[in-house]
Simulated scan of single mutants.
Amino acid sequence: MLALGIRRVHSAVDAPRLTKFFLHAPKCVEVEFANGSAFKLSAEFLRINSPAADGRVRSVGGEKVISGRRHVGIMSAELVGNYGVRIIFDDLHKTGIFSWDYFYHLGSNKFSLMRNYIKLLKKHGLSRDLPRRK
């Protein structure tokens, strides 16, 4: 478990101050905020919502889709300045920096974001699982 000391930076998002960040590698991240909100965000959920542009994103019908990440894991997290964390995933994705405000957005909208992601995969005939090797 990784716990980081948190300092607040002003941003355009009206998210409450982050008070706790815990990495439970490889499964999830837990974040807690000053307003009492607490969220447990899975590695898969964070990976598919990475704020970075990723070369492994498929463009299907003009939509960007990341598939096959159900069993992705988190290898580590690195503090970036005093505003966020870079998460390194075991599929070697490491370019996304998750700000404290973005964690609040993800946690607050977790169920609708995941539901929309699953609908998008179904729409394009894709899966949360990796394709089987032949």
Results as ranks from 00 to 15, higher is better:
M1Y: 05
L2D: 03
L4S: 07
V9F: 09
V9M: 11
H10C: 06
S11Q: 09
V13E: 15
A15D: 00
R17N: 06
L18V: 08
L18Q: 03
T19C: 12
F21A: 03
F22P: 00
H24R: 12
K27E: 11
C28P: 00
V29M: 11
V29N: 09
E30L: 14
V31W: 02
V31A: 10
E32V: 14
N35I: 09
S37D: 14
F39D: 07
L41T: 07
S42C: 03
S42R: 03
A43D: 03
A43P: 07
F45Y: 09
L46I: 08
S50F: 01
A53G: 10
V57C: 08
G62T: 04
E63H: 01
S67W: 00
R70C: 02
V72Y: 02
G73R: 07
I74H: 13
I74F: 11
M75L: 15
S76E: 12
G81L: 06
G81S: 09
N82I: 13
N82V: 13
Y83D: 04
V85R: 02
R86V: 04
F89H: 14
L92Y: 12
H93N: 05
T95E: 12
G96T: 01
W100R: 04
D101G: 13
Y102V: 02
F103M: 09
F103Y: 14
Y104I: 05
H105V: 10
H105K: 11
S108N: 11
K110T: 05
L113T: 03
M114G: 04
M114L: 14
R115N: 12
L121A: 10
L121T: 13
K123C: 08
H124M: 06
L126K: 08
R128G: 02
P131M: 02
P131V: 08
R133N: 10
K134S: 08
